[in-house]
Structures are given as C-alpha cells and as structure tokens.
C-alpha cells in the first residue's frame, strides 16, 4: 500500500469507530473520559445523547448525599442504566435494569471531588447513550466514615425498609423506598466496605419489574425513586455484600 491509500484506510477506520471519536467529543471535557470508555464500554458503540438527562446540583452542598435524578425523554428500549462518576475513587455509582419500568431513577450519592456524573443507557441494539453534568464539591464524601458506623443504633435497624407507591397515570407508579444501611465505601480507615449489592422489585406474581445494583458511592440509608410500568402492590427484596437480606411489601397506593 502506498502512503495515500494507507491514509485513506486510516480515515475510513476512524470514521467506522464512533466510540473512539466520542472520547475527544466529550461535552463535559473530562480528562478521565478516554479511560472511562476503555474501562466500562470496551468494544461498544457509545454516543452522547441529549435525551439522556442527569439532573444534579452544580455544587455538592452535602458531599455525603448529593441528590441526582436520571431520566430519558423519548429514548425507547432502554435495558440498562449505568451511572458513573469520572473523578471518583470508585467510578461506578449504580447499575439499573428497568425491566418493566421507565429508564429513570432518583437517589443520593457521595462526591469525593469535582466530577462529571454520567448516565449511560444501553438500548436493545447494544448502543450506549450517554448524558451527564459536572458536580463541584469541597470533597471527602467517599473517604468519610458513615454516620451509622459511629452509632450503635443502626445495627438493630439494619435492612429496615420504608416504602410508598404513588399512582402516576394509567398503569404507572412512582415507587420510593428507603433502606437503613451504612453504605460504607471501604475507603475510610478501619471501616470495611459494607453496602447494598442488589435490590429487586417484583409484582404480586413474582415477576421482576426492576433490578438495581448499587455501588459503594450510593449515600447512606439510601432513598430510591423508580417509575414502574405497573399498578398495584410490589415487593422490594435486597441483599448486601455481607449476605444480609431484607424484604418489604409495599401496598398499592390509596386511591
């Protein structure tokens, strides 16, 4: 091959790799994004997509519990939602599978330093659609001990669930639940990682409506808000990384 055809071949190769192109096109201009792409989306097609919205304050008033709401308007067939923080000692924040639910989740997370917080939504065709915002912070959220770890009270209440459903139009419900758990990251000296590993929401027939896998950065005593495509009572069941299990039945909303 002569030089010109080599160059042409290289150009074609570049055009055929949208993921690689995405690294330099990062709308959040994060130095970590190239690494994040390699680490979390190897060989996958990744596109930045304005329909994927991450709503979070531009400054973390509480670095131990910064609220975030992830949602997608007009993006169909979302099978998985991966929430990531570029500049965090632990990048994955939460993994969400909205089986019979909208690709939307609200919760709080710990912020160690200024970082992009991103949601990557994988659609049925295998493409990851990415949106996000920067959150600035004084920091220290991930390396601080939980409040619970300093109090004897949490142990007797570990795994308690408080939950409620709200009707949201035809056969849709907002589910919100809170679980008592210290969610220790393992990064505070002398306190091992201790966090909720998985939660499954199912209907009365045992069919899975939604599944989520929190990571260490999810805030202590987490509150999750989900939008289920389902009417009626649900069951919330979960497990932490030490094998403790919890479950609760959330009654249908009073109409």
């Amino acid at each position: 091959m002569n030089t010109i055809s080599k160059t042409l071949a290289l150009m074609l190769l570049v055009l055929a790799m949208p993921a690689a192109a995405a690294a330099s096109d990062d709308p959040l201009d994060s130095s970590q994004w190239r690494y994040m792409l390699r680490q979390y989306f190897p060989d996958a097609k990744v596109v930045f997509d304005d329909r994927v919205q991450v709503v979070a304050p531009d400054y973390a008033e509480d670095s131990l519990a910064t609220p975030v709401q992830v949602r997608a308007e007009g993006l169909e067939d979302v099978e998985r939602v991966l929430v990531l923080a570029d500049h965090s000692p632990i990048n994955p924040v939460l993994d969400y599978y909205p089986v019979r639910a909208a690709p939307a989740i609200g919760f709080h997370f710990k912020v160690q330093q200024a970082t992009p917080i991103r949601a990557a939504m994988r659609t049925a065709d295998g493409t990851w659609h990415v949106g996000g915002v920067w959150v600035d912070a004084e920091g220290g959220g991930c390396t601080a001990p939980s409040v619970g770890s300093a109090s004897p009270l949490w142990e007797s209440r570990l795994g308690e669930v408080e939950g409620r459903l709200w009707a949201r139009g035809d056969r849709s419900q907002r589910l919100k639940f809170r679980v008592v758990h210290p969610m220790d990251t393992g990064l505070a000296a002398g306190i091992p990682a201790f966090f909720i590993r998985s939660v499954t929401v199912s209907d009365a027939d045992g069919r899975t409506l939604a599944r989520l896998e929190p990571d260490e950065p999810v805030a202590e005593n987490p509150v999750f808000a989900l939008d289920l495509k389902h009417a009626g009572a649900v069951t919330v069941e979960g497990r932490d990384n030490n094998g403790n299990v919890f479950s609760a039945r959330i009654p249908a909303p009073a109409s």
């Binding site: 400054y59 008033e61 609220p67 939950g163 959330i250």
Partner: peptide, 25 residues
C-alpha cells in the same frame, strides 16, 4: 435559585422520610 437548592439538601431528606410510612413488612 442557588440558596433554594441548598435548602433542598438541608431540609428535604427529613421531610421526605416523614412522607414514607413507618417500617413496611
């Protein structure tokens, strides 16, 4: 709206929790 948003961080968690029923079985 910055101060309002800070107040959400300060005040909403307790109010949000009080709108959830006590422990559900």
């Amino acid at each position: 709206p910055g101060e309002y948003r800070r107040s959400v961080s300060h005040l909403y968690p307790a109010i949000e929790q009080s709108a959830l029923p006590e422990r559900t079985e």
